[in-house]
Amino acid sequence: MYNLIGAGLIVIGAGIGLGQIGGKAMEGIARQPEASGKIQTAMIIIGALLEGLAFGALILAG
């Protein structure tokens, strides 16, 4: 039961984090469309790092 609540909290946290990353990246691309390639790469790396953390926590919770 408690691990299910924990899993929910993890997903909420990861969702907020991914939203921040995606939103800021989009703002950056809108401001400087010529740098979109670099921003995308950095966005994917940060997203992957966050995802690794979230999955690690989810596996520990489940």
Partner: peptide, 11 residues
Amino acid sequence: PFALLIRLFAN
């Protein structure tokens, strides 16, 4: 590397 292995496996 631990994050690397967990990410691929879990995805």
